[in-house]
Design a protein around this nucleic acid. Sequence first.
RNA 1: GUGGCUAUAGCUCAAUUGGUUAGAGCACCAGAUUGUGGUUCUGGGGGUUGUGGGUUCGAGUCCCAUUAGCCACCCCA
Length: 415
Amino acid sequence: MYYSVPRGTKDILPEEALLWQELEQTCRDIFRLSNYLEIRTPIFESTELFARSIGKTTDIVSKEMYEFKDRKGRSLTLRPEETAPVVRAGLEHSLIRPDQVTKLYYIGPMFRYERPQAGRQRQFHQAGVEVFGSADPLIDVEVILLNRQLFSALRLKGLSVNINSVGCKKCRPEFRKQLKDHFKYNINKMCADCQNRLEHNPLRILDCKEAKCQKYIELAPASVDTLCDECKGHFGAVIKQLDYHQVKFVVNKRLVRGLDYYTKTSFEIISSNLGAQNAVSGGGRYDDLVAELGGKPTPAVGFAIGLERLIEVMKKGTRDEGRGTQLDLFIATLGDKARELGFDLLIKARQKGRSADMDYLGKALKTQLKLADKLGAKQVLILGEDELNKGYGILKDMKTSKQTEVRIDSLEEVV
RNA sequence: GUGGCUAUAGCUCAAUUGGUUAGAGCACCAGAUUGUGGUUCUGGGGGUUGUGGGUUCGAGUCCCAUUAGCCACCCCA
């Protein structure tokens, strides 16, 4: 073993890659049904883009970015998430307009420098959607339903929706103030992280899991209680629609996501089949981000799904088992003449769109059949010297073991 | 960034208080059947015991460092 993958990264081997293909294709199909179109952006962007959008004081920006300088000294960063790049690209190419709805989706790798753990890698993959231009609560509901539809297409179980509203720039200052007032008397009894959070991001105190902080957090005001009329109405409309569409969810007043750009609706989808890293999907509304990045004020909603975590759920047996590899045709040959004829037929079978392969190691016939069996071949064409001399080949059905003789000049038709 | 556990064949795991040539199952290759798969039987290849030091007559085993994985914190997908 001379080299191994970099820490926190993984090779996806052929067997698992089949699962990935199914997952990615399902994402594309489902997103397509709701009229989302794909966008692909570079894997790195200017560092400033992420600092601006995600927030300089967030963990992601302050300590988890893969940042580097290129040869001209420009500061670039491997994307830790895809919302900001999509907004950037949308503005750059005038895809995003305040007066119309734009729906985009993406699938690809993201990078965060974190300590690896089950369900947490330094390179991981997300599939997500972003909707620009509508402040309608129905859009919030649409993206949540999109998650449900995707999970149901993948036959996944054990998932639950957590939802909250974190308010907007009108009502959030009041909420922050209430939180600060609430915590300031006891802050020195709370953990060091919370003491820091009090000043720069008091909302995140609510998400703290430290035991000694819990009793103060339990008594803290909830954002849903300080929402302005507009946010309250919006949240109510979302909840009403979720109920109407029979989405099982819980209002989690402590749900505060680690990216600063979220407004109003914020949600996470949790799997009961994973360890500590149990969020398979997360998202929400970010009505101020487009303007923050230089566009006209444009409301937006989106979410991102953690594909590695979904793959884990898929593997956990909470779904019907998939099938392994399959091959339409295997060609077994004996002797050089037969091998060349077999190769020619092999190429022709593939041109017809059949999956086909043959032995390239000069193995015994028995071994070739063994290999055909292992590859899940439906049919084997046996070409030996005897057959060629007599002018036919043998087509064997591997399921029924039935063999039929086929004249050489007809072989092209059967492969 | 913090704490705990772990690292032996491709995979899952053995190896007595430190003791000679590091074993087994599965997988792989081959033979039994000199041209017919799945079952069976027989044989075979494969290891610098994660890496680097140290203690010892002797280290897979004990000690230190390092790398990586796992679990949790933190954070998030």
